[in-house]
Design a protein around this nucleic acid. Sequence first.
DNA 1: GATGATGCTACGTCTGAGATAGTACGACAT
DNA 2: ATGTCGTACTATCTCAGACGTAGCATCATC
Lengths: 115, 115
Amino acid sequence: MPISADAIRGYVDLMVLSLLRDSPSYAYELAQRITSMSGDDYAIKQTTLYSAVKRLEAGGLVSSFAGVSPSGKPRTYYRIADAGLAYFDLKVAEWRSTKSVVDRFIDAASEGVSQ
Amino acid sequence: MPISADAIRGYVDLMVLSLLRDSPSYAYELAQRITSMSGDDYAIKQTTLYSAVKRLEAGGLVSSFAGVSPSGKPRTYYRIADAGLAYFDLKVAEWRSTKSVVDRFIDAASEGVSQ
DNA sequence: GATGATGCTACGTCTGAGATAGTACGACAT
DNA sequence: ATGTCGTACTATCTCAGACGTAGCATCATC
């Protein structure tokens, strides 16, 4: 089942931060990994990812540093900041709440088979 | 854990439709029920709910009909349409996909405790 | 008669995701 | 040598959903 942008909206930052928690990376690779981890269900757009990392950097949740690709071309890497780690934990908690609330509605609806 | 508007965004329609699946209702009551079912985690704003039902009606997912409150005042009721039932099922499937994808990132992050 | 709950409307703002388009370089095939 | 594909990044714009703010009217209760 494909996931629309609206459905995943609000969780792109969480996905990016979860990857950066493991190790620094750069926008292009992050996009690849997010798409591959979603298993065809969700293909993140380049612009979405690039604006996400910039937003995160502007918010102090990640920091960038210059690196180079194997071919010697400049590449912008991102590393998660302390604030990003804290924000990630917060978002995970919020995600769990959201899941529980939305599921509550779905479960109630599947019970009420009336009319 | 309080749920921000951004976190629940995209699922207001699903919540409304799930309630209307059981029985017709009107905007004010829907807002009350959504807020109470969310158990303090999410208080939907009146404007959000009103624009949601109008959006759903414009999309043919619900239909409205005139009713009256016990005191005799006019009240606009909404009933789920066939298209709304189908849309609800679709959104539920999408929700399950979304859950699985987002959880995948969270789980991966909790394993990767490196650095 | 003031307050609070009910029930609804109008307008504006803000943000995130994406559409569209472009630049630039290396590798590889034809 | 030329084209095209993959990599890596940037700029500008649009669109929709959720909400802020504000207002209006009725009814019940104090």
